[in-house]
Amino acid sequence: MFEAKLNEASVFKKIVESVKDGFKNCNFDCSEEGISMESMDDAHIALVSMKLGVEAFSSYRCDRSISLGLNIESLLKVLRTANNNDVLTMRAEDDGDLLTLVFEDSSNPDRISEYNLKLLNIDQEHMSIPEQEYTATVTLPSSEYQRIIRDLTQLGDSITIDAAKDGVRFTAEGDIGSGSVSLKANTNVGEDEKSIDIAVEEPVALGFNSKYLTQTCKAAPLAPRVSLNMCKRIPIFISYKLQAGHFSFFLAPQISE
């Protein structure tokens, strides 16, 4: 038996909204440590990895590890019926083929809604992700990251992220011209959430398909800060820290041959 209760359905809704454009079917792996999910897009360019630890839940029970295979679009149909502050309980039997989602309206205890989603058998391999030391890490407000990518995507279908000791520069070039946004490292005293933190051992410049970078911005509502971890010629690791877990993307770069 698996049963997990989230005090705010919106947390799970935001997670699922963040993957809806690139990932069709995902396995949510439930164990005694919490719920995790790893999935690659069809083109094998982006990999999403999520973990919600047991502490994220107001109650949590998982007698036996199970994988809940879910169609993201169907799951969203159900999650969108909820109010953001509804209490969400997810339940599945060990050998069942359904995930039950129960929403309780915190302002109206007389209203309870319940949905059953058919589970899918998704054949999905987990990837072995090597431990990696990144030589450049930029941490910035997720809303700022989202704005930069949104603005530059209009100019070109490829965006270069250039991290140096004194700042980070995002550049796009396309048919209509080019554009760039530079951010200098700063610390807003008393406003840590707005600071631009840059830790660069070695300057790194990596290019990415802007469509996939846009995908990685969708998680901005999940956390106020995002960190971009880079190293030469390997995938960027883009991570949002959750209260009890993380939501991260790996994105394969475009490299000169």
Partner: peptide, 14 residues
């Protein structure tokens, strides 16, 4: 010209 790399160039299935 730059070539889009695949995640499979870096990560292998477990």
């Amino acid at each position: 010209t730059k070539k889009q790399k695949s995640m499979m160039d870096f990560f292998k299935p477990k």
